[in-house]
């Protein structure tokens, strides 16, 4: 069996899997730090998708090189990887570290107030049940 077409799309298969893993982490995990890790995984999956769109088989890094005497080199737009998704994802990385910092600061604040990082215990405390048994039972 020829696996070449499947391998060529490997980035997109991995993108699906990693994005859904991040979504699972954000939605199902009850620990706040685990949720933040899931958020980071989700963000990187989106970046993987965008950069994979811009990549091209056999193309080079988009850097301007000097043309030689025969006129080869120089600007050759067809041989370049599309740099526009790279620039967009550069911004996304900076935004991701900013959201990470804010999320961890909020987590520290919740820890100082409630003494726990588990979301269900914090919710139970908010509802005025110190035992923490009012929430749904853990599987």
């Amino acid at each position: 069996m020829d696996f070449a077409p499947l391998l060529g799309k490997a980035n997109f298969w991995a993108y699906f899997f990693i994005m859904l893993t991040g979504l699972y982490g954000m939605a199902v995990k009850r620990n706040l730090v685990k949720k933040i890790i899931g958020l980071g995984i989700f963000q990187t999956a989106i970046m993987l998708f965008y950069v994979s769109i811009g990549s091209k088989e056999g193309a080079t890094i988009p850097i301007l090189t000097a043309a030689d005497a025969a006129g080869r080199g120089g600007i050759d737009a067809a041989a370049y990887i599309n740099p526009l998704p790279h620039v967009l994802m550069l911004t996304a990385i900076v935004v991701s570290v900013a959201t990470l910092g804010v999320a961890l600061a909020l987590t520290l604040r919740l820890w100082r107030r409630y003494g726990t990082l588990e979301e269900d215990e914090i919710l139970a405390r908010l509802r005025g049940d110190p035992g923490g048994e009012a929430c749904t039972p853990r599987s």
């Binding site: 980071g40 950069v51 994979s52 994802m89 990385i93 991701s96 961890l104």
Partner: peptide, 30 residues
């Protein structure tokens, strides 16, 4: 994938600063 600028930004910010922030938060909590 040929995205070297994204690569080194990810290496410094993703693997460096994010890990340091996580360690700082975990050392202060549990």
């Amino acid at each position: 994938l040929g995205a070297v600028d994204v690569g080194f930004t990810e290496a410094t910010i993703g693997a460096g600063v994010s890990s340091a922030l996580f360690f700082a938060a975990i050392f202060r909590t549990t």
